[in-house]
């Protein structure tokens, strides 16, 4: 598997799109940090960008990559290599490459800004950790879509729908539910609903690291009470890890049964 991972990563590290992605974050990081003196504001803006953009790029780029490398996959399938190593290798190659663009693109301006000496290091770290998790999760979901759909147009359509649902529609439905059931106690319901969507979960995890979580009022207190504790953190990360493991397990399962 490591050999496939190495070559997938190597192939991607030369792709123009990896650099476009990297330079986008670099530019964004530099502009936000050096043209704006408030670190907390910069982190919030970055969070909003990461939370929306990382899932979008991971799904679209993921689906595109797997459809494009289909012939290469067939070449590998004829070699004495197991299916597991081929697909998991490609998955990790892609996910690591996307994460590297993110970490380097945002990391360099932050290091230049001197974040390592400041107290904001943990805000920044939670930003990057969430970004990496989102890359891992949405790349895995993209590969699931690509493996289950031979038709590229359908695959792309589903990928965009998935992103739209997770990033926008889910929050809308959540909000409608909150308004509709406002007479009932909703704190447990909100906690669980947020946990079930990795995008919302990441957003809350980052927000709670920042001072502005005080502005969330009573609702914020409920979240701070849960996510701020060790148990809450452990549960949140377990949920994020489940969001990685389940799609990856399904990749393994489908790829074992698929005809090429």
């Amino acid at each position: 598997m490591l050999k496939i991972l190495k070559y997938s990563f190597y192939d991607l590290s030369r792709s123009r799109w990896s650099y476009v992605y990297f330079f986008f974050y670099l530019l964004l990081g530099v502009v936000l940090l050096f043209l704006n003196n408030d670190l907390s504001n910069a982190v919030i803006t970055l969070m909003n960008v990461i939370i929306i953009l990382v899932p979008l790029i991971s799904t679209i780029f993921g689906v595109m990559y797997f459809y494009n490398s289909r012939e290469f996959t067939e070449l590998l399938l004829a070699l004495p290599v197991s299916r597991n190593s081929i697909f998991l290798g490609q998955y990790f190659g892609l996910a690591i490459s996307l994460s590297t663009s993110l970490i380097l693109g945002l990391g360099l301006p932050f290091i230049a800004y001197g974040v390592l000496q400041s107290g904001a290091i943990w805000d920044f770290a939670s930003l990057l950790i969430s970004g990496v998790f989102l890359s891992l999760i949405f790349t895995a979901l993209a590969l699931n879509i690509a493996l289950s759909n031979e038709n590229k147009i359908k695959g792309f359509g589903l990928a965009i729908l998935l992103w739209l649902f997770m990033a926008i529609v889910y929050d809308g439905l959540f909000l409608v539910a909150l308004v509709y059931f406002q007479d009932y106690p909703l704190d447990k319901f909100s906690l669980i609903t947020i946990m079930l969507n990795p995008i919302d979960l990441s957003r809350i995890l980052i927000l709670l690291k920042l001072d502005i979580s005080a502005l969330l009022g009573y609702t914020g207190a409920v979240f701070k009470d849960f996510f701020g504790t060790a148990l809450g953190t452990i549960i949140s990360f377990s949920v994020l890890i489940c969001w990685v493991i389940l799609p990856v397990w399904r990749i393994k399962y489908i790829s074992e049964k698929k005809d090429f």
């Binding site: 190597y10 192939d11 991607l12 490398s69 012939e71 070449l75 004829a78 004495p80 290599v81 197991s82």
Partner: peptide
């Protein structure tokens, strides 16, 4: 079925020759 080691003994030429476009021939 469900094995892969035996492919060590097979040389296969696929019908459509399409390779990762960013790699060099040598690589």
């Amino acid at each position: 079925h469900k094995r892969y080691g035996y492919r060590q003994k097979i040389d296969y030429l696929p019908q459509i020759a399409n390779f990762p476009s960013n790699l060099k021939v040598k690589e």
